[in-house]
């Protein structure tokens, strides 16, 4: 069942003469984990701003074509209504957190919805537990590490119980272990709770294994859209200049030398296993 659909969607910022993206037609199904990537300035962040209505309602500008989110035509519904279906997590959690305790930050969106006190408490506790930061609930967000702050930002979105969560480069300020923990939290939201995930990310080595689908944008257009293996192995992915996973890269290097490993690997584990098999097989 589809949750997001765009048809020939084109958007131009108010002061700009050139569209930030054009003719984007994509369909995302409920429960999918989509990895959206492409060079800086390709239009991916701008596209994400349409999913919860920041475009066109906040940024104005010119939006052409069709966009439906959770059965709602985005231009016809205000941000506060769309925000109950789609949550947005930003690159830098400092831009999102402001309260004096983690718990208050996570409760803020719910208070604005005017929910009863008991339900707010229940949802806040639940979101803190799912993201693994329940122990930090009384701490001030600004005292926390970057990775912990990003989990607070995710919890505050999760508490709204959206059907879709969009994360715009959520790990770019984090060290590798911090990033891995964030990806694991996101994966849990997707696999356990069935939340549709749209993850904008450059670190494809770490993120690819979680995704059902990869969409690559370049110069305002969607240039590739498909299963991670099919997308990463295509020559176009390399031409666009996205850093394909090393496992896939190694597969391609070996293939150029006349060595076929069979299936295209995207994780280190898959690549190791396939190379082991090739080494053993050749010996016999």
């Amino acid at each position: 069942m589809e949750i997001i659909r765009t048809e020939d969607l084109t958007y131009t910022y108010p002061i700009s003469s050139k569209p930030a993206f054009r003719d984007v037609s994509i369909t995302i199904d409920k429960g999918e984990f989509v990895l959206l990537t492409g060079p800086s300035g390709c239009g991916k962040t701008t596209l994400c701003r349409c999913f919860n209505g920041l475009i066109p309602h906040f940024y104005s500008g010119k939006l052409e074509g069709e966009i439906m989110v959770a059965g709602l035509r985005v231009p016809d519904h205000p941000i506060h209504e769309l925000a109950q279906h789609v949550g947005l997590v930003f690159q830098n959690p400092e831009n999102q957190l402001f309260a004096l305790s983690v718990e208050k930050d996570v409760a803020f969106g719910l208070e604005n919805l005017g929910l009863p006190r008991d339900e707010i408490r229940e949802r806040v506790d639940w979101a803190l537990k799912v993201t693994g930061i329940y122990d930090l609930k009384d701490r001030a967000p600004y005292e926390l590490s970057g990775g912990q702050q990003q989990r607070v930002a995710i919890a505050s979105i999760l508490a709204m119980r959206p059907e879709v969560i969009v994360l715009d480069e959520p790990t770019s300020f984090l060290d590798p272990l911090g990033a891995q923990k964030i990806f694991e939290v996101i994966d849990r939201l997707n696999k356990r709770l069935g939340i549709t995930i749209i993850l904008v990310e450059h670190r494809l080595d770490l993120a690819s294994k979680y995704a059902d689908r990869v969409i690559i944008m370049n110069e305002g257009r969607v240039v590739l859209n498909g299963r991670p293996r099919d997308v990463f192995i295509s020559d176009e992915a390399q031409l666009v200049g996205v850093g394909i996973p090393k496992a896939t890269m190694l597969y391609k290097l070996l293939r150029e030398n006349g060595i076929e490993l069979g299936r295209v690997p995207i994780t280190a584990e898959e690549a190791s296993q396939m190379i082991r098999e090739a080494l053993t097989h050749d010996r016999g």
Partner: peptide, 19 residues
């Protein structure tokens, strides 16, 4: 150092013990 091995090294570690 709480880092993660380079991806290439992780692939090759999986081949340890092979001839």
């Amino acid at each position: 150092a709480s880092l993660i091995l380079p991806e290439t090294t992780r692939i090759l570690l999986g081949l340890r013990g092979m001839e």
